[in-house]
Simulated scan of single mutants.
Amino acid sequence: MAVYAQELEDMLREAFPNATQIVVEGTDGKHMSAMIVDESFRGKNRVQQQRSVYAALKGKMDGPNGELHALALTTKAPD
């Protein structure tokens, strides 16, 4: 079962309710990109930021049989 952009965006908004920006793009349900700008990323390195995003996906990217195959991520704290 594919993950659709709106479903992914909803999950991210639930996990990062105070994000100043969340943009999700993707058309095939398997390959997507997301940009998240959230204060919770301040002081965290890139790996820590991305781990928090993967945790928010609740297993959608787990293993070779995950619903979402690839997610290009841009994460940062607000300027």
Rank of each mutant, 00 (worst) to 15 (best):
M1G: 09
M1L: 15
M1Y: 12
A5T: 08
Q6P: 10
Q6R: 14
E9N: 09
D10K: 14
M11Q: 09
L12I: 05
R13A: 04
E14C: 07
N18Y: 15
A19H: 03
A19F: 03
T20H: 14
T20E: 14
I22A: 02
V24P: 01
V24Y: 01
G26E: 04
T27Q: 14
T27G: 12
K30N: 14
H31I: 06
S33R: 11
S33P: 08
V37F: 00
D38C: 00
S40N: 07
K44Y: 05
N45K: 12
R46F: 15
V47K: 12
Q48S: 11
Q48N: 11
Q49W: 03
Q49A: 03
V53Y: 00
A55L: 11
A55W: 09
A55C: 13
A56K: 04
L57F: 03
L57G: 03
K58V: 07
K60T: 09
G63W: 07
P64F: 15
N65A: 15
G66D: 06
E67D: 14
L68S: 00
L68V: 04
H69G: 03
A70R: 10
A70L: 12
L71T: 02
L71Y: 00
L71V: 02
A72Q: 13
T75Q: 00
T75I: 01
A77L: 07
A77H: 05
